[in-house]
C-alpha cells in the first residue's frame, strides 16, 4: 500500500456537542500525522443524515468507518488515542 492510496474515512457523530467537536479536531490531527493530507475524512452528523447512518450500518456514536481501502472497518467510542485509532483502521505508519 502506498501513501497515495485514497484513504476514505467517515466519522459519524451525534450532534455538534463540544465533546464531538474536540473529537473531530483530535481525529483530524491524527490523520494528518499518521497519513498526511491524502486522507479524506468526512464528518457526518447522524441527526442530519440518518439515511447515511443507516446505509453504513451505524448504530453507535461516535463511529469511525473506513470506507476504503476495503474491507470496511469500524471503530466505536473514544477516538482520542492516535495510536489506537490508526491501529484499528490498520493505517498506521508501520503498515504503510
Amino acid at each position: 500500500m502506498s501513501e497515495a492510496a485514497p484513504y476514505r474515512l467517515r466519522l459519524f457523530v451525534a450532534g455538534s456537542s463540544a465533546r464531538s467537536q474536540d473529537m473531530i479536531h483530535a481525529l483530524r490531527r491524527t490523520c494528518r500525522q499518521g497519513l498526511g493530507p491524502a486522507t479524506e475524512l468526512e464528518v457526518v452528523d447522524i441527526f442530519q443524515q440518518p439515511d447515511l447512518a443507516e446505509r453504513n450500518g451505524v448504530v453507535a456514536a461516535p463511529t469511525l468507518v473506513r470506507l476504503s481501502p476495503a474491507p470496511v472497518r469500524r471503530l466505536v467510542g473514544d477516538l482520542s488515542d492516535p495510536e489506537r485509532v490508526l491501529r484499528a483502521m490498520a493505517l498506521g505508519p508501520g503498515a504503510a
Partner: peptide, 25 residues
Amino acid sequence: VQVDRSDIEENGEYDLEGLFLRLGF
C-alpha cells in the same frame, strides 16, 4: 440493523444514538 462483531472495534465511551435515530426515522 446489521451489527457485525468482526469489523467493529470499540474503545471508550460511545452511545447508541445511531440506533435511536434510525428507529425514530
